[in-house]
Design a protein around this nucleic acid. Structure first.
Lengths: 137, 137
DNA sequence: TTTGACTCCGTACTATAGTACATGGTGTAG
DNA sequence: CTACACCATGTACTATAGTACGGAGTCAAA
């Protein structure tokens, strides 16, 4: 055993499923390494690459966006500003999502306040009556 | 023409796609009405039902959750408190999502601040270097 | 050399929320 | 009565992010 990084060892080392790595390769997010013989043997840096993908997802980037981030990283014409732009777009997207969720929350709280007696039969539940009424915000 | 509400008219009246109504019926979210002849003819209240579903989605409920809301509405043992409980759970869920998004945002802003010169080649982009560093929050 | 663990590949399946389409049947207006 | 718009049904497809699995091939240790 020459301690080569097979897909199973890479998976264990980077904390993902073997199938996930194969999935990323199919999607073009990870490049298939040159095979020596029949198996894939990965350079060590693939561990970092997978961590990068996972971190990117934690930050709210989709796999597609992660791929484009990685593509930028590879192209040597890319400027640092390209990455910054992606980051700022994502911040804006997240701001919008937060706004949407806050609106939902406000509406739900309004509904919850409609309920004065939890033991009322559902036929007289004011929440369901309030349900269709939209706030004029 | 007896002005009966066929699926196409229901779709138009409630602002969804014909296929969507059929999809809801397959999922059990809408009950298929008794057919007179070969076609479905819907009572008028189906328009309200579809509006209810759509409103429920706007409030962050999934179709499955919407279905259980509608099920509660039908069962006459249900109490108003059941609906309130669902509403409060959903508020908690949304609070958690907002928290997660705010964490993402904070991290992304941290990354954006790493960038001092947009014209730097990507190989020297500090954002990508910062990427893997997690805040100890 | 044999065995057992691992790998390869393709395909199918999960969840969520629909959309699209082909084929054939129906209902009604002219 | 015929034409055309609409309906019924089933299946396949979209996006997102994987997971699961069957059957065949391979690598390495004993």
């Amino acid at each position: 055993m020459k301690e080569r990084l097979t897909i199973g060892k890479l998976a264990k080392a980077s904390g993902v499923n073997v199938e996930t790595i194969r999935f990323y390769e199919r999607k073009g997010i990870l490049k298939q390494p040159n095979k020596q013989g029949a198996f894939r043997y990965y350079p060590e840096e693939y561990i970092t690459r997978i961590h990068f993908i996972k971190r990117s997802q934690e930050l709210g980037f989709t796999l597609k966006e992660t791929q484009s981030l990685l593509d930028l990283k590879i192209k040597n014409q890319s400027k640092c500003g390209d990455i910054l732009a992606r980051t700022e777009e994502k911040i804006e997207e997240i701001n919008q999502k937060i706004k949407d969720l806050k609106n939902m929350k406000k509406s739900l709280e309004g509904l919850a306040n409609c309920c004065e007696d939890r033991s009322l039969p559902i036929s007289e539940c004011p929440i369901l009556d309030c349900f269709m009424i939209r706030k004029e915000s």
